[in-house]
Design a protein around this nucleic acid. Sequence first.
DNA 1: CGCGGTGTTGAGACCTGTCAAGACGTGTGG
DNA 2: CCACACGTCTTGACAGGTCTCAACACCGCG
Lengths: 239, 239
Amino acid sequence: MIDAFLRKLRARDDLLPGEEDVLRRAVGETRRVPAHRTIIRAWEPVRQSTLLLSGWTARAKDLESGERQITEINLVGDFIDLHSFTLKELDHDVVALTDCELACVPHEAIREITEKFPHLARLMWLVTNLDAAIHREWMLSMGRRSALARVAHLFCELLVRLQVAGCAGEDDYAFPLTQIQVADCLGLTSVHVNRTLQELRKRGLVELRNRHVRLPDLGELQRLAQFDPGYLYPRKQAR
Amino acid sequence: MIDAFLRKLRARDDLLPGEEDVLRRAVGETRRVPAHRTIIRAWEPVRQSTLLLSGWTARAKDLESGERQITEINLVGDFIDLHSFTLKELDHDVVALTDCELACVPHEAIREITEKFPHLARLMWLVTNLDAAIHREWMLSMGRRSALARVAHLFCELLVRLQVAGCAGEDDYAFPLTQIQVADCLGLTSVHVNRTLQELRKRGLVELRNRHVRLPDLGELQRLAQFDPGYLYPRKQAR
DNA sequence: CGCGGTGTTGAGACCTGTCAAGACGTGTGG
DNA sequence: CCACACGTCTTGACAGGTCTCAACACCGCG
């Protein structure tokens, strides 16, 4: 159930004896939410963190004028709000992009981990820092990459992350986002995302239909996006 | 010496007895670096984190084409790379924007804190999560705010953060950045930053000269920027 | 006094946004 | 089974914000 999360941790460091058990015991009840539901509302007190067991979620910030910026996509095995353990309330909403299965982990349990399992606590700290690294790469996209490179980069990132989670093939994966949601991720309009996708299709870099994407020329796509997976910290290391 | 950092922590939660001492003992030697120096280079192994005692630094990511994106400004009392404790290497450079004084904190010392001072460790975890919250707000700026609002928002953020650090007046502070660096923060060109600054001056919202800025109509500036300091998590809370 | 970096200005290009309309697809109710 | 409604995708014409390139002014400093 929490296996995708364990895999994510083990990709970065070996777990010590007992750590897997503690984590399994830390997990409380699970629940399902339908697509479009707001799972966590900004600025409301949070007493538990939530692990994503299946589906896609997004962290979204809105301006008064209604424009939305998605600051991160979360996938199977991600905590959607582990940072709420230290922050106690979030500066953004978390919304379900698809139907989702969620597992609760009470902050009290995480606190116990910080008291008694410091190595595991460091790994959970690491996980929140991985989110921040993704944030920084997205900033680079929004500040300095063209629309074409931005869209390409998003497809590249999601491929790698879904592969780690075991939810993607060599060069394809289920892609549930609408063009509106892609636009909200990239700081573009949906009209322009549409035209950009057409350009990527014309170049033979992206095949997208029926909520499924294939990236037939990954090398070229990565070159176009200047995608380097280093920022996802895929290496195992003592931490 | 590390007082600005202590103030930053105490603004979020009370310290327990002994925690201040541990922190003071954790700090190793200090050093000075001149402006423009690269303090930490991306992807090189890091064995210590660095506390900023004076000056301004930036986290910078570059594209091959040479375009730069600054993903965060760090100020007195900030760790410039606390996340390197879990990440072991950084996905970005850290550069000195001004002459800086730095203090080393060996990762070994932070590791000890996670082993023996879990509450303090949680506060240091919190500090890295504050960085991520700033990242998210900057993403909102770059994705959805106009150039005018972006520049305004940056001035608002720096005012609040410098006030917490005790380095700003009611409505003014020393502002050492060039327009090129501001552009790199906001995903704009320096030419456009220049024109945007003129517009802000014309509206009576920003007075900037001699590396010093005053914000005569803070309320209006914040309204224009849709600035809400909540994302800086200025509240004290048990953590 | 000259130099290099920074700030300023102008003209024009271009990328992306805006607005609007229609096509397409899917689920629902009659 | 059809009609309809709704969201999404697509397309076109046009607007506008931001960028590019270039030149010049300014200023601190050696």
